[in-house]
Design a protein around this nucleic acid. Structure first.
Lengths: 253, 253
DNA sequence: CGCTGCTTTGAACAACTTCAACTTCTGTGG
DNA sequence: CCACAGAAGTTGAAGTTGTTCAAAGCAGCG
């Protein structure tokens, strides 16, 4: 028998009911007997170590995943053998939604640190969503959010300068930590500068220089992976207005 | 009484059953009595003229839409009063999926030419998906495809040169026409160079220069909005490998 | 016919990348 | 616990690519 009401030694067998990510995850807006049904189909896997893979490109799509703790990056290999980072996934965020259509994963998911995830077999989730209208609704909502978020990112990558891209990235991470109940002004970035640069479509050196400049301008403190945001407004301005704000910030220092 | 089995004078009251986009749309993989139920909830609106809006930013989300004929662009206004084009929508493609989560549209949808759409009230679609497992599945599939496509685009915008962006754009449009049974090598682009540039995160001038260069290199013929693709392989190479292929194409002319 | 808006072209300029060297950090074995 | 090797990050200088500004060419439309 599964015994998912008891926190085991590894801390991974917490029920949805008791999970701190409850409000960010699929269970949002369902409870009681319905939640138990969902709870029952979810598999809690043993934690991934840094650099281990959750799934590979082309591997069969059976489940979607929710990050429980830690973080992952997803990336696609390009024709010329490079990686292209497509996303970072923090606790409470879903992975694998892009694979439903094709039946296999179009990208790789790799742990950036020790990371545990919940695995939700998709066929069983679909069956359950068929029974529980609120679950179907929540699933559609979450997929819609994913589409929305991707478009936000496209907006970012489509137009903006290096300055705007990095500030928008920092704001995005900051807000996501905040939603999860962590500090929005002080946090650790689990990904390397290389991953950030790749994700934002910039050279590592450019990202590094931007970090330095933001720090010199007193907007952030960046000591390796430890980031503190000092001037939120400045970041927002740079993320939003690109060229204009750049001139302002240059002349105001 | 609705009389959706008869093609009316405006050609917009075709049933799903008879619609040429059947295989690309929600009805895919349902038929018979089930299809009629879906058919029944779909509203066929009168065509939009060029530059008319299907929905505005912030307008309440009630329905998703399928393009029946014509085309639209979606864009978000940025802080500095500019537009950022987030997508182009051809026949058979869905609009509005990004609004489910928030309950209101995060972008504007504007017709690029005379365009007719089917409107699908979302609450009724959800109810119906509750009844019909294949419809639920198809809805999830389509949303997943949207996520996948957005990530493809991010991949494009994230890393590539102007050359790679424009060739990938042309290939994408070409493939989408092909799927809809039109020619993949000769078509009209309904959007302006400005919209293309904006979408790809480039200056109009750069896009214009690229079109000229592709033409000079014998890869395409571009006469205003009328495009013919002469050398598919060259486009693919440029879309995939960026720097490398650029040097090749330069020296081989 | 002459406007208006879209597209193209040219030249100067700015931003980002690339290449190369150097520094700092991390983890492993002696 | 220290030394060392490799990885990750930073910094500088030169080189490209794309942007910006300015102006001319073209199509559509009253």
């Amino acid at each position: 028998m599964r015994d998912n009401k008891i926190v085991d030694l590894h801390g991974i067998n917490v029920s949805c009911n008791e999970c701190s990510l409850h409000q960010l995850c699929l269970p949002q807006s369902i409870d009681g007997a319905e939640l138990e049904k969902l709870d029952y189909i979810i598999e809690r896997k043993k934690p991934l170590k840094r650099n281990e893979y959750l799934f590979q490109v082309g591997s069969a799509f059976d489940s979607i995943y929710v990050v429980r703790s830690g973080s992952l990056k997803t990336f696609s290999p390009t024709i010329d053998g490079q990686e292209q980072v497509t996303g970072f996934h923090l606790p409470g965020e879903l992975l694998g939604l892009d694979a439903i259509g094709k039946g296999h994963h179009p990208c790789v998911a790799k742990a950036l640190e020790t990371t545990s995830v919940c695995e939700i077999p998709f066929d069983r989730l679909e069956e359950l969503a068929q029974e529980l209208p609120t679950l179907q609704h929540q699933l559609l909502r979450l997929m819609s959010k994913e589409i929305f978020d991707d478009q936000e990112l496209m907006l970012l990558l489509g137009k903006k300068t290096a300055e705007a891209r990095l500030s928008a990235f920092l704001l995005s991470i900051s807000l996501r930590f905040k939603q999860r109940g962590f500090s929005s002004t002080e946090f650790y970035l689990s990904m390397s500068r290389n991953d950030i640069a790749n994700y934002l479509g910039l050279a590592v050196e450019t990202v590094s220089r931007m970090f330095t400049r933001f720090q010199d301008d007193g907007i952030i403190t960046a000591e390796r992976k430890h980031i503190m945001i000092k001037n939120w407004n400045a970041l927002q301005q740079m993320a939003g207005i690109s060229q204009l704000s750049e001139k302002v910030s240059k002349s105001s220092i």
